[in-house]
Amino acid sequence: MLGEGIVKGLAETARNFLGSFVDEERLTTVEYPEERLPQAEAARNFPFLIYDGDDAEKGLRCVACQICEKECPPRCIHIEKSKDKKPDYVGKQQFYPAVFDIDVSVCMSCQICVEVCPFEAIRMDTQFELSTDDRFGGLLWTKAELAKTNEYYHSIHPTEAGETDARLDEEKAKVAAKAKPAEAEMQAKA
């Protein structure tokens, strides 16, 4: 009980104190908002819609099948089907959503809409700095705010996006392979 433990403790804190000025790695503080920690790849926050190409209207993958609207547990998705059709990624004529609203203040990020979508149209975004002071409309996102490009999807979830694109390319290849013999038949007949 001669105080050597106290002296050792004081030496330790002194080393911490002096080292924190000299050695940059000692200070593990991330000074938000100037610095941000990178998020894990599987991070998720709220959903967004994907469109291929440049035009958000023409390239939108969603075909308004309304499966996500029915499966969403807090029922925060509101979809209204369009009256006309437009071609999808394989060229088939499909409906598209005239209105696609997600109430993000209700959404619980359960990802069920992503799991049930058969068209790889809706995925989870990672943005979390979404505070707004507009109490009523600020967190109700429409189709225009939800639609983001496939490149953006690649930038936030590269592995998933790679797998999704591989699947979509496979589908396109299958449809093209079926179309080629059909075309050859048509040409042969004509």
Partner: peptide
Amino acid sequence: KGLGRMQNRYGPN
């Protein structure tokens, strides 16, 4: 700030 540096963090800055 001193306590922060001893605890390997910044103090108020």
